[in-house]
């Protein structure tokens, strides 16, 4: 039986990429109901930290832990990763793209049409994804977080390519997720006005790997 997620933490995480130490002895803590906003200069390791939490990169030292959540599942399996790439197939329609991720990811939540309505794309459901603008593609990719239920959202520059109205809508959705006891880790170089947030600033840690 899954319980709600309480806290995600990392202890003295160290990670090398291509011979370069990107994260060194990093500790952080993110609590449910509040967004952890990761800031820092380019190359400070914001995206790397999110990919590490998503299980796509492995640390050389340190560990990640989760309080609460489903003990049957790994941390990545409880995360939604919203990275720079949209994971859309241009040949498939908007509806087919979203429907695939809904069926593939498991634990379905909102229907495809509810999620599309939420991001303002309901009218375009039958169009091929190839016809969408950059902002529309971004919103469609974001709708993926709504069709299946996962407690931890990892958002990498979530508002890039979005206009002011879309950005407000996205922040509202993220706010609802937090109100529902969800956990958000967002990497950004812009000030994101979340209602409840903690911040983590990554230093310019471009140190040669030992």
């Amino acid at each position: 039986m899954s319980t709600s997620v309480k806290r995600l933490f990392g202890r003295s995480l160290t990670l090398d990429r291509g011979g370069r130490r990107v994260l060194s002895d990093l500790s952080f803590e993110a609590a449910a109901g509040s967004a952890l906003v990761v800031t820092g200069a380019n190359g400070a390791g914001k995206s790397t930290l999110l990919r590490l939490i998503a299980g796509l990169l492995r640390p050389v030292a340190g560990d990640l832990g989760l309080d609460g959540g489903d003990p049957e599942l790994t941390i990545p399996q409880q995360c939604h990763y919203f990275g720079h790439m949209d994971a859309l197939k241009p040949q498939l329609s908007v509806e087919e793209n979203l429907g695939f991720w809904r069926a593939f990811t498991g634990s379905a939540d909102a229907t495809v049409f509810e999620a599309l309505a939420r991001v303002g794309l309901a009218r375009l459901a039958s169009l091929p994804a190839a016809y969408l603008s950059a902002g529309q593609r971004r919103r469609l990719a974001f709708a993926r977080l709504l069709v299946t239920k996962r407690p931890i959202w990892l958002l990498d520059e979530p508002t890039s390519a979005l206009d002011a109205a879309s950005e407000a809508r996205l922040l509202e959705v993220v706010g609802d997720h937090l109100d529902g006891g969800g956990l958000v880790v967002a990497a950004t170089h812009l000030a994101l006005p979340f209602a409840r947030m903690d911040s983590l600033r990554l230093g310019p840690s471009v140190v040669e790997a030992a």
């Binding site: 794309l121 009218r123 375009l124 169009l127 091929p128 016809y131 969408l132 603008s133 529309q136």
Partner: peptide, 8 residues
């Protein structure tokens, strides 16, 4: 359809 996508 492309106009529709742009004007949506």
């Amino acid at each position: 359809r492309m106009i529709e996508a742009a004007g949506a």
